[in-house]
Measured scan of single mutants.
Amino acid sequence: EPEARKIVEKLINNGLSPEDVKRWAEKNNNPEVKKAAEEYQKR
């Protein structure tokens, strides 16, 4: 999901860690963003 990846990169560029992004995604019920954050961590 390229859109989710863009969101993850934007949040990380704004100073969030991938863990923060995953928590944000869970709080906002956004499994695509959570998955993208996990993939981002593996890179």
Rank of each mutant, 00 (worst) to 15 (best):
E1D: 13
E1V: 12
E1P: 13
E1C: 14
E1I: 13
E1T: 13
E1K: 11
P2D: 15
P2M: 15
P2G: 14
E3P: 09
E3W: 05
E3M: 09
E3F: 02
E3Y: 02
E3K: 08
E3V: 09
A4S: 07
A4Y: 08
A4Q: 02
A4P: 09
A4G: 05
A4T: 06
R5L: 11
R5A: 11
R5S: 10
R5C: 12
K6N: 10
K6V: 11
K6A: 13
K6Y: 07
K6F: 07
I7V: 08
I7M: 09
I7P: 00
V8K: 00
V8A: 06
E9F: 01
E9I: 13
E9Q: 11
E9T: 08
K10F: 14
K10T: 12
K10P: 02
K10I: 14
L11W: 07
L11H: 03
L11E: 02
I12F: 06
I12C: 06
I12G: 01
I12E: 02
N13C: 13
N13L: 13
N13G: 12
N14A: 15
N14V: 10
N14K: 13
N14D: 14
N14G: 12
G15F: 03
G15I: 05
G15N: 03
G15L: 05
G15A: 03
L16G: 02
L16S: 05
L16D: 02
L16Q: 05
S17N: 07
S17K: 05
S17H: 07
S17L: 05
P18Q: 04
P18S: 08
P18Y: 14
P18C: 11
P18V: 15
P18E: 04
E19K: 05
E19L: 05
E19C: 08
E19M: 06
E19A: 08
D20F: 05
D20K: 02
D20M: 08
D20G: 06
D20L: 05
D20N: 04
V21Y: 01
V21A: 04
V21T: 02
V21F: 01
V21E: 03
V21M: 05
V21L: 07
V21W: 00
V21K: 02
V21H: 01
K22N: 06
K22F: 11
K22I: 15
K22Q: 10
K22T: 08
K22S: 06
R23G: 05
R23Q: 10
R23T: 06
R23Y: 08
R23K: 11
W24V: 04
W24N: 04
W24S: 03
A25G: 06
A25L: 04
A25Y: 02
A25H: 00
A25F: 02
E26A: 01
E26H: 00
E26Q: 03
E26I: 03
E26M: 01
K27Q: 14
K27G: 09
K27Y: 09
K27D: 14
N28H: 13
N28M: 12
N28L: 08
N28D: 06
N28Q: 10
N28C: 15
N29C: 11
N29R: 06
N29A: 09
N30V: 11
N30L: 15
N30Y: 15
N30C: 14
N30K: 14
N30D: 08
P31N: 08
P31E: 11
P31S: 09
P31Y: 10
E32S: 11
E32A: 15
E32M: 12
V33C: 03
V33G: 02
V33W: 04
V33N: 01
V33I: 10
V33S: 01
K34V: 12
K34T: 08
K34L: 14
K34P: 01
K34G: 10
K34A: 13
K34M: 14
K35Y: 06
K35Q: 10
K35A: 12
K35R: 12
K35L: 10
K35E: 08
A36W: 11
A36L: 13
A36N: 02
A37R: 00
A37N: 03
A37E: 03
A37M: 11
A37G: 02
A37S: 04
A37V: 14
E38Y: 03
E38H: 04
E38A: 05
E38R: 02
E39G: 04
E39Y: 02
Y40N: 04
Y40R: 05
Y40I: 08
Y40V: 07
Q41A: 10
Q41W: 08
Q41S: 07
Q41K: 07
Q41H: 07
K42A: 11
K42M: 09
K42Y: 08
K42G: 10
K42N: 11
R43N: 14
R43H: 12
R43Q: 14
